[in-house]
Design a protein around this nucleic acid. Structure first.
Lengths: 338, 338
DNA sequence: ATGAAAGCGCTAACAG
DNA sequence: CTGTTAGCGCTTTCAT
C-alpha cells in the first residue's frame, strides 16, 4: 500500500491503439469488439475485452462523436435551476436520460431569452438535442434555433415542435369551480412574466372558465414570480378588495401569503389564495396553499423520450403530450366573505 | 415568409472546411481567426468571420476536444437534484462555469455510491474534471477515481483532494451556545445517513461543543434525511424526553416539526428544534426553523474555480477552502421548559 | 474473421 | 501572414 496521496495529474487514459497493441490485434478489431460484437470471433473478442478492462480502457466519446456526429448527450434548459418547480422536470429528465444510457447536460437560462439563445448556440454542436422547459424565447427565435437543432418543448406549444404541456384548460376550470363552490363571485389573477407561455395559458383558461360561470375576473401585474414579488401583488389585491386571488405560481403565492400575514389580512377568511405548481414548501406554509399540481417529473421524462425518438429513431412528426393537472385543496381557500 | 413549420431534420452544420472554401482561404486560417486572432491579418480575419457568420458556422467542440484532450466541460455530481440544499451548490457551480466559459454537466447519484461510481466512469472521458458534492463513495474508491480524473470535493475532506467545506466546528458551537443561552442542559442529535461525511462532522462538532459546556448530548438514528424521516425521529425524541433536538438537516427538521405538531407537542415551548442548511422552506413553516446556514452557492462556485485551476492552470497542490457558517435564529428554538 | 487505410473537424508544427 | 501536413481516437469501407 503506497501511502501517497491521490495522484494530482490523472494519468492518461488508454486508447484503442494501446489496447490493440497489448492484445496483439488491429485497432479495428478492438473497435468491433465493442460496437459490433457479432462480427468478431468470440474468443478474440473476449481476449480484447479482458485486455481493455486491465488497461481501464473505455472508448472516447469525443472521437466517436466526431465520426458519427452523435454525442449521445441531450441538453435540458430551464429558466432557473433553484426554482423548486423545475426540480421535478430535471429529476424526470435525468431519470429518462439515464435509462436510455444518455448523458444530460443542464443549463440555467436565468429567465433570459438572450442567455437561452447563447446556451443553445454554445451547447448546440456538442449535444444531439434540446429540451427547452418554459422557454422564454419568441416563436421565431425558436424556429430559427430549430434549423440547427432538434428541440422538444415543455410547457410551451409552437407549431412544428414536439411538446409536453400541462392541461391548463382543465386545471383552471378546477380552480374556478372550487372557488365558485365557496361562493366567490370574482377573482383576480396576479400575473407573472409576460413572456411566460404557461402564464398566458393560465390566464386565458381562468378567464374563460370564470366567464362561463359569470364570475368577474381581472388580471393584475406582471409581478416577479418570486417570494419578493408577492408583496406588491398582495397589496394590489387588497386595495382592489379581492376576495380570491389566483397567483401566477406558487412562489408568488407564498410571497402573497407572507405579505397578507404581515398586513393581518386573514387567509382564507378575508381572502382566498390559489397557486400553480404545488412546489415543495406549498404545504409547509401557514395556511397551507391550495394549488394546481402538475406532473413535472413526467413532463421531464416524456420530453426526453420524445426528443430521443426524434433524434435517434428518426421520428419526424412533432407530437404533443398533454399531462393532466389536479387541484390540491389545502388551507388557503375558503368561503367568500359575506 | 415560408409558412412551413420548423424543419424536422436540422440541417448539417457548416465545418471549418466549408468556411475556408467559401472565404477562399485555408482551413488553418479559419481556425486561427477564431482561436488566435493576433496571428492573422485583421482584414482577412474579418472576412473569414463574416463568411463564418453567414454560414452559421461555429467550431465543433468534439473535434477540438479530440485534438486537445480537453472538452471544456466540467461535471457536478450531487446525491439528489431535487433536494433544495443542492440547488444552491448547483446554481453557484453553474454561474462559475458559465463565467469561465465552460459547460457544466449535472449528475444525480441518487444517494448511491454505486450510481456515483457509474457516473464517474461514464462521464469521465467526456469531461475535464468533477466536482463531487457530498460524495457517498468510500475514501478508497475516491482515490481510485482520482487516478483517471481530476476531482474536487464539496463537504467532504479526503487527503490529497481539493475541497470546499463548511465550518461545522464553528457552526455547531454556535448552535450549542444558542441552546445553552436558553437554559438547555441537554440535546439530542437526530442523525442522517451514516455515509454522510457532513453528518459525521456535525455530530462530532456538536458533541465536542456540548461537552465543553457540560451539556448532555446523545445521538439517535440514523433517520432518512427527508420529510418522511421526521416522524420516527420526532417520536424517538419525545419518548426520550428531549428538550432540544438538532437534526441532521432541514428536511429532517421540517419532518420533525410536522410530526411534533401532529402530536401537539409545542415548539419551542416543549422542545426546541434546530436544523442544518437553511433550505428554501425553512422560513415558511410554523414555527419558522432555526438552522445553520451554509454558503452553498459559494461552495459550488469555489469548487468549480478550484477544479478549473487544477485542470486548466496546472495547479497541483490540493487546496482546502473553509466556508463560514452562520446560525439563523428563528421561531423553533426557545427557553428550555422548567 | 481480421487488418490496412481513409477520414470525421479541428489545431499545431512547419514551411514558405 | 498564410498554406500544407500530420495527427488526435475512433469507425468504417475495402481488402485479404
Amino acid at each position: 500500500m503506497a501511502s501517497e496521496p491521490a495522484a494530482r495529474h490523472p494519468r492518461k487514459r488508454a486508447t484503442i491503439t494501446d489496447v490493440a497493441r497489448a492484445a496483439g490485434v488491429a485497432a479495428s478489431t478492438v473497435s468491433r469488439s465493442f460496437t459490433n460484437p457479432g462480427r468478431v470471433n468470440s474468443s478474440t473478442r473476449e481476449h480484447v475485452l479482458e485486455v481493455a478492462a486491465e488497461l481501464g480502457y473505455s472508448p472516447n466519446p469525443m472521437a466517436r462523436a466526431l465520426e458519427s456526429g452523435r454525442t449521445n448527450t441531450l441538453a435540458l434548459l430551464v429558466p432557473d435551476i433553484t426554482n423548486p418547480y423545475f426540480a421535478g422536470v430535471i429529476k424526470g429528465a435525468e431519470r429518462a436520460a439515464a435509462a436510455a444510457g444518455r448523458t444530460l447536460v443542464l443549463g440555467d437560462t436565468q429567465e433570459s431569452a438572450a442567455t437561452e439563445a447563447r446556451l443553445l448556440q454554445r451547447l448546440g454542436p456538442a449535444v444531439d438535442g434540446f429540451v427547452l422547459s418554459a422557454s422564454r424565447m419568441p416563436d421565431d427565435d425558436l424556429r430559427r434555433a430549430a434549423e440547427l437543432n432538434t428541440i422538444t418543448l415543455v410547457n410551451r406549444a409552437v407549431r412544428g415542435f414536439s411538446c409536453v404541456v400541462a392541461d391548463y384548460d382543465s386545471g383552471t376550470r378546477q380552480i374556478v369551480d372550487h372557488l365558485a363552490s365557496f361562493g366567490h363571485r370574482s377573482l383576480i389573477f396576479l400575473g407573472g412574466p409576460p413572456e411566460s407561455w404557461s402564464g398566458a395559458r393560465r390566464w386565458f383558461g381562468l378567464r374563460a372558465a370564470a366567464q362561463e360561470r359569470d364570475m368577474e375576473v381581472r388580471r393584475f401585474g406582471p409581478y416577479s414570480p418570486t417570494l419578493g414579488g408577492g408583496a406588491a401583488a398582495a397589496d394590489a389585491a387588497v386595495a382592489a378588495g379581492a376576495t380570491a386571488v389566483v397567483c401566477h405560481n406558487d412562489m408568488l403565492a407564498l410571497g402573497v401569503l407572507r405579505r397578507l400575514h404581515e398586513r393581518r389580512v386573514a387567509v382564507p377568511e378575508d381572502i382566498s389564495v390559489v397557486g400553480f405548481d404545488n412546489i415543495f414548501g406549498s404545504d409547509l406554509c401557514t395556511p397551507t396553499l391550495t394549488t394546481l399540481a402538475e406532473r413535472t417529473e413526467d413532463a421531464g421524462s416524456r420530453a426526453i423520450e420524445m426528443l430521443g425518438r426524434q433524434t435517434y429513431e428518426g421520428v419526424v412528426e412533432p407530437a404533443a403530450s398533454v399531462l393532466p393537472t389536479q387541484l390540491v385543496v389545502r388551507g388557503s381557500t375558503g368561503a367568500a366573505p359575506s
